[in-house]
């Protein structure tokens, strides 16, 4: 999960935030890290470029990108598949 946090910080250019500052279950959008819809697109690109995973159903986005843990679980499930 630490690697994924580093990738998120780099992809979203989260200045002044270190990977270790992001909690595993901290909400990423709105009240958490304050990410927005463009960040969501960046996360979709990250999944595809780094893990070869294409988010087939856009309606899954809010669930998949809720926290770092939920993203990690989605990656684990879909890499294995």
């Amino acid at each position: 999960m630490q690697t994924l946090k580093g990738q998120i910080v780099e992809q979203l250019n989260l200045q002044h935030i270190k990977p270790e500052d992001i909690g595993d279950d901290q909400p990423l959008f709105i009240e958490g890290l304050g990410l927005d819809s463009i960040d969501a697109l960046e996360l979709i690109v990250l999944l595809q470029q780094k893990y070869g995973i294409k988010l087939a159903n856009p309606s899954e986005g809010p669930t998949v990108f809720k926290t770092v843990r939920s993203i990690a679980e989605y990656i684990t499930a879909h890499k294995a598949a």
Binding site: Q11, I38, L41, E42, I44, V45, Q48, Q49
Partner: peptide
């Protein structure tokens, strides 16, 4: 670099 695949939207925007 992405061989015309999926790219980051920020620079495009």
């Amino acid at each position: 670099e992405a061989a015309e695949g999926v790219v980051s939207p920020t620079a495009f925007i």
